[in-house]
């Protein structure tokens, strides 16, 4: 299927600023879907609120544009209800890891088969340039006029520790790599995280004197290196890109089916279940 077939033309022109990284991610995602050859009826895209969350509107699949930070919680309901569907959840850094941080941890812990794509521009784009939990120290933001004193999460380490079974990181400069990672992540059975370092020229770029979108992309190129590379060994301050976790691990909906099978056996052996009829405090 040609890539235009995955687009909802009615939704265009898109809302993003010129040079915004979110469009690049949309492009890569469409190409990944084309490569995977999935039927559009089998795909559900769930997003929260933010510039990044608007991706869902442009893609011609089932789309659920929800609340700031809660996309993974809605997605969990869709997935557990219809495990055969492919679930994609694009999120901004604030969406995913500030207000949505708890849902992110628990979706990863359950290892539910959802692909989470974090569009990390290290700033709150939609609300006008406030800092995010991925900004890190020393960043200028509208709510950090004296520069940020908050440390940033490391998305890869956080995802790994929380139990995600596929974790990758790349940037909007490395478009082919991004496309490949998205294909891998969507194919992977379990909770997959793809962190995409992205640019918000309008807020992050301008306030932090990073220049144009092109300058920002160049920076993403020069500050990141492949995982396990010689360059990284020589300069550990560079940010590694690549697939960090790719693990075979029981997936939540499969475990649910196993549990159902066990419950059936119990009902057959012991008759109708009786209620867990005990009173508990607080």
């Amino acid at each position: 299927m040609a890539i235009e077939n995955y687009i909802r033309k009615r939704f265009f022109p898109h809302i993003w600023c010129p040079g915004c990284g979110h469009g690049t991610v949309l492009n890569a995602l469409l190409r990944a879907l084309e490569q995977l050859g999935l039927s559009k009826n089998e795909i559900v895209m769930v997003s929260g609120i933010g510039c990044s969350a608007r991706i869902s509107g442009y893609v011609d699949v089932h789309t659920l544009h929800t609340l700031h930070g809660r996309a993974l919680a809605f997605a969990t309901g869709v997935k557990l209800s219809r495990p055969e569907l492919t679930i994609l959840v694009p999120m901004g850094d604030g969406d995913a890891l500030a207000i949505g941080g708890n849902h992110f941890l628990h979706a990863a812990r359950r290892n539910i088969d959802i692909t989470a794509i974090i569009l990390n521009n290290r700033i709150y784009g939609m609300t006008g340039g406030q800092f995010s939990p991925l900004s890190g120290c020393g960043i200028q933001a509208t709510t950090a006029p004296y520069s940020t004193i908050d440390h940033a999460f490391d998305v890869v380490e956080l995802s790994r520790a929380a139990g995600a079974s596929f974790v990758a990181r790349t940037t909007t400069f490395h478009v082919r790599e991004l496309e490949k990672m998205l294909v891998q992540a969507i194919r992977h059975r379990g909770f997959s995280v793809v962190e995409v370092l992205s640019q918000c020229p309008t807020h992050f770029g301008r306030r932090n004197k990073e220049g144009s979108a092109v300058d920002m992309l160049k920076k993403l190129q020069s500050k990141t290196v492949p995982l396990n590379s010689r360059k990284l060994e020589l300069d550990p301050s560079l940010v590694p890109r690549g697939v960090f976790v790719d693990q075979d691990k029981p997936e939540y909906c499969e475990l649910y089916d196993d549990m159902v099978a066990r419950s059936r056996v119990e009902v057959e052996e012991q008759g109708q279940p009786v209620g867990a009829d005990a009173r508990k405090e607080v």
Binding site: T66, A73, G77, N102, E266
Partner: peptide, 24 residues
């Protein structure tokens, strides 16, 4: 689970409400 339905204990009530909307 015994009658083919789905039960999930979520991480809080916010996500519980969101999950039932998704499932609906």
């Amino acid at each position: 689970p015994a009658n083919g339905g789905r039960f999930i204990q979520m991480e809080d009530e916010i996500s519980s409400m969101c999950a039932i909307i998704g499932a609906s």
